[in-house]
Amino acid sequence: MLMLRDDDTLFAALLARDPSYEGFAYVGVKTTGIFCRLTCPARKPKRDNVVFFSCTDAAQGAGFRACLRCKPLDSRRPASGALDLLRDKVKAEPDRRWTTEELKALGYDPSTVRRAFQREYGMTFAQYARSQRLGHAVSRLKQGGSVLEAQLDAGYESGSGFRDAIGRLIGDAPARTTARQILTAQWLDTPIGAMLAVADDAGVHLLEFAERKALPNEIKRLREQVAPIAFGRHPMIDTLADEVRRYFAGQLAAFTVPVVQKGTAFEATVWDNLRRIPVGQTRSYGALARTLGRPDSARAVARANGANQIAIIVPCHRVIGADGSLTGYGGKLWRKQWLLEHERRMADAHRTPASAMDRDPTA
């Protein structure tokens, strides 16, 4: 399961801009003295002009400077400047209703902004801002604010338009939201892409990468089986966000935040056993089936694995094919490979003496 690290493999990954090596491999270009991520959008150098490194310290120690375009010293993946700025502005002013003229005044082309948000969150900037605006309006209603106040805060001049928008968001009329349980949603940014988190006082109901194809159906199922969903802030998501941050920083191997999953008794047993697979290890579907005392149920285990909608915490990425192949993963195979390599290094770090870690931070 370890990533191949020979130079030919890494050069092929460089040409393909393979994101599964993010944070694990860097390329130095001898002719420029610059080192980059393998996903750098710059023109690719010739094979004879490159050298590969396992960490940024090694690249800098060899005299290479960090690329100003792909910014390999940043822990997060490089993103559009428009995405970073506008995401912060929406967070600071959740009630604001953005116009194309305002985007242009900031120096951004609206179509560029739309594509950047579509790539990262699976929705346009207008949809992203609207979801945050309506979520804030729902919070106002839950706190006892009037429908009119919430409507105006959300930027709706028409009461009927506001009611329709709230109805699409949480499946209920504004006046009735104060009496209903509502799940809270929030985007969490990670080094390998945005994740959607949904939680309430009981725990986390969903944690998925934005690109997961099944995500719309999972959201629909939550709305139908549990409660309406609105974007906003919740202490449970604050706790989750902190644990997710520490996990990706290599500081947390076991999550403590509670999870809430609805499934069959068999699915629940599979999900429970997924959480028992140690960090840095994998299991095949067949091996997991044998652990459950049902050696002929490998396919059923695979289906239950695919039905899991709390990624990373319930580590379905740790299940592989009997031949060692990665097999399917809803968050995309390159992320599965990234997560396994990240966890392998975390496990190695816990087994490595501190002095050795100081010498090689990527051990």
Rank of each mutant, 00 (worst) to 15 (best):
D48H: 10
R176Q: 14
L38P: 08
L292P: 12
Q151T: 04
L38D: 09
A298Q: 11
R69Q: 05
A79S: 12
P228H: 08
I310T: 03
G232D: 09
F209G: 10
G331D: 15
D18Y: 07
P235E: 00
P235G: 01
C316P: 03
L83D: 09
E101Q: 15
A154W: 10
R140G: 09
E267H: 12
C70Y: 07
R119E: 15
I166T: 00
C40L: 09
V301H: 11
L339A: 13
A298T: 01
A289Y: 11
K262W: 07
D200F: 02
E149T: 02
R65H: 12
G28F: 06
R114P: 12
V198Y: 07
R359P: 03
Q225W: 04
S80V: 00
G63W: 13
P45I: 04
N273W: 14
L141C: 04
D74G: 01
G250V: 02
I237P: 07
A268T: 11
S160L: 14
P361L: 00
G324W: 09
G167F: 13
P72C: 02
F125C: 05
D48A: 13
A66D: 10
A199C: 07
R114Y: 11
Q281C: 12
L252A: 01
R303P: 00
G81K: 15
V147K: 14
S297G: 00
L240E: 00
E157D: 12
K262Q: 09
F231K: 00
A289H: 08
T264N: 01
K71E: 14
I277M: 11
K213F: 13
K336P: 09
M123Q: 15
Q118I: 04
N273P: 09
I229Y: 05
E343W: 09
V301Y: 12
R5Q: 13
G159N: 09
S146M: 01
S131I: 07
G33H: 11
I320W: 06
L340V: 01
T362W: 14
R303Q: 11
L240F: 03
R221F: 00
L86D: 02
A253F: 02
P216M: 02
A105P: 12
I312P: 06
P258R: 02
A227D: 10
A126D: 13
G155K: 03
R351W: 07
R114V: 01
L134K: 06
L206P: 10
A363R: 15
D57W: 01
M357N: 01
A265L: 12
F64Q: 03
D348S: 11
E102P: 05
C70E: 10
P258D: 05
I277N: 03
A175I: 03
V50P: 08
G167H: 13
A354V: 09
I182N: 06
A126P: 05
P191T: 04
L106P: 12
R76A: 10
A253K: 08
R37Q: 05
Y121H: 15
V27N: 06
Q186L: 01
A300C: 05
V50R: 08
E218N: 14
L73T: 05
P110L: 09
V314P: 06
G203T: 02
W98R: 04
E211H: 14
I229L: 08
L2A: 13
P94W: 05
R351K: 15
